[in-house]
């Protein structure tokens, strides 16, 4: 009896949270298949009847969304990859080597993360403009590094620290170089951390709005979040298209999460307890 009551006590709040989290997503998915007329009915219609693919046709063949999708993909993959490369070396250094100013450097890495985004837009614009990187993939990729690298370094530092020093000592005695130790021993052991950082960085850059809005102003360079906003004009919003585009935008993230979910959760746990 007590067990059942306890289960109910746990299940109820969980249920509320799940509904709160999932309902907007479901509403988006359902709405994407509704014709315009059914989007505004009161009381709302739960299911589209009949469902229509007009919104998707509109989004995929008559808008710039496919181009934006490709842009987003290139920029997110590029910046995630770069963040990973830099974060691995930086985090390994912070975790393993004793050097002057290590803790100060590690603190500064985080302070960069604390600056409000809006305050760095103008300076970044000037720098990017000077370098001729406005409206380029490389420009946004580099800017996104500012966004994702600090936390990536911190997360990976925790993971690297959790690897026993003796493992690396053993590898050094076995004849591995310092880089050999990193790539043959330590890196395979922080796979959960790599996955966590990849997910975090990809999602953060995939959803980023303000930098993309400021530094990619030409149609050929815009990313998905900006494209989504373009469906809203001064006088009208094509909600059906917004829902369909959102659906398209959500798919890659949902897919990645589904594939990596188990490893991601495991990764977060070990980072939390040993970091």
């Amino acid at each position: 009896m007590r067990d059942r009551r306890r289960t109910a006590l746990i299940a109820l709040p969980v249920l509320i949270l799940v509904v709160l989290a999932v309902f907007p997503f479901l509403w988006m998915a359902v709405s994407a298949f509704k014709p315009l007329s059914q989007l505004y009915t009161i009381p709302p219609r739960w299911l589209p009847s009949p469902p229509t693919l007009d919104n998707f046709r509109n989004v995929l063949f008559e808008s710039n969304i496919p181009r934006y999708f490709v842009n987003s993909l290139i920029i997110s993959v590029g910046s995630t990859f770069l963040a990973l490369v830099f974060a691995i070396f930086a985090a390994y250094g912070f975790a393993r080597f004793d050097f002057r100013g290590r803790s100060a450097a590690l603190a500064f890495v985080l302070i960069g993360q604390l600056l409000p985004t809006a305050t760095v837009i103008v300076p970044l614009y000037i720098v990017l403009n000077y370098l001729g990187l406005i409206n380029t993939y490389l420009g946004l990729i580099l800017v996104y590094l500012i966004l994702t690298l600090p936390l990536s370094v911190w997360m990976l530092t925790g993971y690297f620290r959790s690897i026993p020093k003796e493992l690396e000592d053993a590898a050094i005695i076995d004849g591995a170089s310092q880089l050999g130790v990193l790539f043959r021993i330590s890196l395979p052991l922080v796979t959960p951390g790599i996955i966590a950082v990849t997910l975090y960085s990809f999602v953060a850059t995939w959803n980023e709005f303000v930098f993309a809005l400021s530094f990619a102003t030409e149609k050929e360079m815009k990313t998905l979040p900006i494209g989504l906003a373009e469906f809203s004009t001064e006088f009208d919003t094509d909600w059906g298209a917004v829902m369909a585009a959102s659906f398209v935008m959500t798919l890659p993230i949902a897919l990645i999460f589904l594939v990596m979910q188990r490893m991601f959760v495991g990764g977060l746990m070990s980072g939390a307890t040993k970091g």
Binding site: P164, E166, L167, D169, A170
Partner: peptide, 8 residues
Amino acid sequence: FQSYALYP
């Protein structure tokens, strides 16, 4: 080593 330090 004391912890064996086997590569897991």
